[in-house]
Structures are given as C-alpha cells and as structure tokens.
Nucleic acid binder design. Sequence first.
DNA 1: AGAATAGTGTCTGTTAGACATTATGCT
DNA 2: AGCATAATGTCTAACAGACACTATTCT
Lengths: 237, 237
Amino acid sequence: MKKNLNSKVLPRVTVDLVIFGLGRQGLSLLVCQRQDPPFVGSWALPASAVDIEQDESLDHTAKRILKQRLNLHASYLEQVQTLGNQHRDTRGWSVTIVYYGLVSANQILMNSLQPEKCFSWVTIEQVKSLHLAFDHQQLFESCLQRFQSKSLYTSLPIFLLEEEFTLTEVQKVYEAVLGIKMEKKSFRRRLLEGHFLEETGNIRRASHRPAQLYRLIEKQPYYFPRIIEGARHQSLS
Amino acid sequence: MKKNLNSKVLPRVTVDLVIFGLGRQGLSLLVCQRQDPPFVGSWALPASAVDIEQDESLDHTAKRILKQRLNLHASYLEQVQTLGNQHRDTRGWSVTIVYYGLVSANQILMNSLQPEKCFSWVTIEQVKSLHLAFDHQQLFESCLQRFQSKSLYTSLPIFLLEEEFTLTEVQKVYEAVLGIKMEKKSFRRRLLEGHFLEETGNIRRASHRPAQLYRLIEKQPYYFPRIIEGARHQSLS
DNA sequence: AGAATAGTGTCTGTTAGACATTATGCT
DNA sequence: AGCATAATGTCTAACAGACACTATTCT
C-alpha cells in the first residue's frame, strides 16, 4: 500500500495573500499583475509556491511574499482558510493556504508612488470588475467577510491606521471596513472602556478644536466582550 | 526560474481530524492507534494523505477518512487551521489541514461496541496523558478552543445530540462543552428566542415530569446575536 | 404524599443606541 | 463672532443573570 513519492501524487502548494489597506477611496485590496502563465497579465492576489528549502513554515512563506516581493510589513496577519481541489488551477490538483493581512496607512503611500512595480491598490468595490485570476475573487470575499465579522468584536481595523490616531479616525476606519455608520458616543465609550488605548499626549490640530491622539497599548488585537449591535440593524454592504 | 516538479520541492499534504463526541464521561475525542511508522502503536488523530487521484477536494478527503476508516458521519465539519513546517514530521516538510467534526450521540455507542477496531473515544481530560503522536496534542487544543469559543454564540453543541432532545439535554451538552454551569431560565429563553428549534410533538418520559422534545429546524448552526455572558464570569476550564 | 425534574414570572444590572449639549481652537 | 469638530451628559430599550415559584408525572 506504500505510495510512490513522485510529483504525480503530490499537490502543488501555494500561499495566497489578501492584503487590506486604507487608501483615500476607502478600504482597498493589493493586487498583482501576473508575470507567468497561466493568466499572464491578469490581476491576481500576491502568491507564491511554498519553498521548502527556504521557508521554515507557512507563516514564514506569507511574510516572505510580503517582504521580498512587496516590501511591506503587515501589522496583522491571519490564516483564513485552505482550499484544495483539482479544478482551481489548470495545471492540476493544487492547495492554497490563504492569509489576510492589514498594512498601516503610511505604508500605502510609500508604495503607491512606485508605478513601475506590477502591483496596485484597488478599492473593495472595484475588485469585482477586475476579474481576478483563478478563484481569487472567492478567496478575497472569504477574507473580507472574515475581516468584517471580526471587526464587529475586535480592534482589528485600528491596525490599518498609523501609530497615532484620533478617536474620530478610529470611527471612520470602522465605518469604512464595515460599511455602516456608527453612533459617536457609544462607539467612544466602547473603545475607552476596553482599556487597550492610551493617550500619547500629542494632539492633532486642524481648523477646529484639536483632538487627543491615542495609540494601541498592545500589538495584539483587543477582543470586545460584545459585538457592535448596530450591525444587526444596518446593512453590511 | 522554472522549478523542477519532483518530490524534493513539494511538501507532503495530509488532512488531520479532531472528532468530538458526547460519551458517558462527557465531551470526548476520537483517537486512532497508528499502524505505520513513525510512531507505530502511539495514539494519534485520524488522518490521511490527500489522494489527488481519488479526492475531489480537501473537504472530500476529510469526509473520506470519516466514512472509509471510521464509518462515521459528521453532523458538522469545519476547517480550523493549516500547519506546515519542516519539523512536525520527521520525514520532512509537511502540511496538514486540520478539521474538527461533531458526531451525534447515537453513532458513538454503535462504534464503541467494536473493540477490535484500532480507535477509541477518550474524554478531553484524558487526552493530555495519551501523548498523541506528532503535534497532534496542539492540533487538538486549537480545535477544542475553536469549538468552545464558537459554542458561546452558536448552536453547535446541539450537533452532538441525537435528532430529538429536551432543553435540559441541550443545557447539559453546553455545560459539558464549555465546562461551566448555566442558568436555566435565561438559557432556555435564549434557545427559544432564536427560533431555530421546533417541538417534535413527542415527549421524553422518566420518573418525573416528562419533557417536550425538540429538533433543529435547519442543518446549519444558528448564530446568536450575543455570546453567553456567564462565560466571562466563570472559568473556561 | 413526596421526589424529581420541567417549565415560568419577574426583578435587577449592564450596556448599546439615541440625541442633545457643552468645549475648544481656528479664521 | 461664527464655524467645525471634539468631547460629554443622560435617557431609554434590550437582554442576560438571578432566583423564587408553579406544574406534572412517577413511585
């Protein structure tokens, strides 16, 4: 019953990344233009085969793609699902481990200034019209859904902001991620009663009353004891 | 840059299963005794390599293991995580996709009557002392944690019961899964206000007041709008 | 009648949402 | 002064927990 270990019986294994960032137009996805067949020239998620000589683990593969190919650092990275079947890649049975990652606002500007690179940020509304290669549209939607539902009870959207931020900016990024409007007082109460933010002492000035700046105390997301209930009453898209 | 497709550059890919059932001693795990090296004779999770000739998808691999090797049907099956690195299997780089599954109470009795089979049910307290092979202890703990935290806001534990059940049995299975005591009235109110149960019209008789029997309306788990808050005040193990 | 469990009535505390109000800096 | 946004005060509705109480069947 022992199987012969050749490539005919082993699936191809890749890691695909769904990277979210906060652009001027709202929540955005990082997409790459494919260099090799199949689907040359199409937009696709950043991905790479697992390199068992170089990578220590799957998490390491995900970070390698971000670092080497995109020169980005994710403030948060989470494995979402693994898809494997014989149809998703025309070259045969393939398995992909899908992660989503969040990058902070300052990194987006830096990268979008290099148009010669073959990647681009598109808003999540624009993604559908891109016709991503393979089953990447579906992978994107799974990750978006996971990110949105986790945003109902965690501090995750804050990982899209810069290190210092005002409470109003936090509310805006939640609204961008969830696609719903939120009530100011209860939102701020919720944030502050979690005790995962601290005042930096600095102040954001504009042509009106200045706002206190905050930062995250921990690098891990905070889990609220309840979900945002408004999400039950407003539409999520 | 094209890679040569031989087994040297492709990791081994397996599916591992964490199967929960409700035995007389409480929440239990299904373990198998290994037939082949490495770890011959040790207890381990039921697992199999992905067979790209036979399996259509990873989900199919999981169901095949349950059906062919264990003759079980899972009332619920969920992919939890994928672990891949060069250390977890002495034979080299390996990737495992881990699922947890729930089997209903009636199936447990049937199977535990066949001691010649090389598998067994052990309570989740006993698992630690078994010293499961590979990193299976860790995979088990991830799945238990996922199952427990999801039980705080879903109807999942009910999938461990038979088709018809009383509300008291539902409370007992939640208490077994979560390891906490719950308050009767608020628990029942929560269950009934979800409108995912229906009375079967039948009655469970015993030497006291008989109880109404219920069944699940849908085969999918119900998601409660809030978590069980008592979990914040009592210990989860 | 008494045991045992099924099932209900109702009070309380917590917290999210709503919305009005005050505070502060800029032009 | 007037604008714009920051920040707060406070009422209400929803709902989980607590706990006492009633209901029903069996022995």
